[in-house]
Amino acid sequence: MEHTNPSGNDAKATPAEFAIWLRDQLERRDYDLRPRGGGQSRFAEDSGLSSGTVSRMLNNQGAQDIRVLETLANALGLPLPEVLVAAGILSRAELAAVQNPAPRPEGPLTAEQAAAELGINNPDDVEHFVATTEFLKRRRAKNRKGRTAEN
């Protein structure tokens, strides 16, 4: 994947960076993007995107609709994740985390681990989350005992 963020950090790409990236991708594919070059209209027709959508993307207005980005990826013959990074939907770090998740501990998660994975960090919220999960575990155990006694 090409780097789309010129600052060199792992922030998400901006609409202006996406426009530069898209312009480069189209020019590499011989779409003439000069005024009256016809490349923008030709790409819109070839890709199935509207001329207005292509124009907005090339004029620093970005693209957030996943269907548009998927159509763009298909038209360019690029993997969707590359386009999502270029469009600033994902940073490289976020993409890497999705593609290579951290190994999970063996066995079931504790309530505290689940809270952390869900981003629940406030101690009061963690305590409430743990209490709720403990209540639900007791209720499930009670329901299982009731069904066993009936059989």
Rank of each mutant, 00 (worst) to 15 (best):
N74V: 05
E82N: 14
L80Y: 08
L26R: 05
A116C: 04
F129L: 05
R23Y: 07
E45A: 13
S7I: 04
P15M: 04
N151K: 14
A16C: 02
R28K: 14
R104D: 08
T53G: 07
P108V: 05
A149C: 01
M57H: 05
L109P: 07
S51G: 15
G38F: 08
Q61W: 01
V85Q: 03
Q113S: 06
G8S: 08
T53K: 08
S51I: 11
R139K: 15
A13T: 13
L118S: 04
R23H: 12
A102H: 10
R92P: 00
G146I: 09
A131P: 03
A11H: 10
Y31K: 09
E150S: 15
E117P: 00
P79S: 03
G62A: 05
N121R: 14
A13K: 02
R29S: 01
A97M: 06
T133N: 11
I120A: 02
R138L: 05
S47K: 09
K12Y: 01
S51W: 01
L90V: 06
E134I: 02
R144E: 15
A16W: 00
G37N: 12
P123Q: 10
A97T: 06
R144D: 11
L58W: 07
A97H: 10
A96I: 08
L95T: 03
R139A: 12
K12C: 09
N59T: 13
N60D: 13
A44V: 08
V98S: 10
A111F: 00
G107P: 07
L84F: 08
D10R: 12
E70N: 14
R147P: 02
E45C: 03
G119S: 09
L72S: 08
R23Q: 06
R144P: 01
I120W: 03
I20G: 06
E70K: 13
L26D: 09
R42Q: 13
G146L: 14
P105V: 04
K137R: 15
R28L: 11
T110G: 07
R139V: 10
F18S: 01
W21H: 05
A141E: 15
E70H: 12
N5F: 11
K142Y: 10
G119A: 01
L84N: 09
P81D: 06
E112F: 02
L49S: 07
L26N: 11
F18M: 07
V54R: 09
L80G: 08
V68L: 00
R138G: 05
A11K: 14
A11V: 04
R138K: 13
L76P: 11
L136S: 04
R92L: 03
T148I: 13
A19R: 12
L76N: 09
L58E: 10
N151R: 13
A97V: 00
A19I: 01
A87V: 03
A73P: 09
R23P: 05
A131S: 13
I66C: 07
A115K: 06
R92A: 09
S51R: 15
D30K: 14
P81S: 00
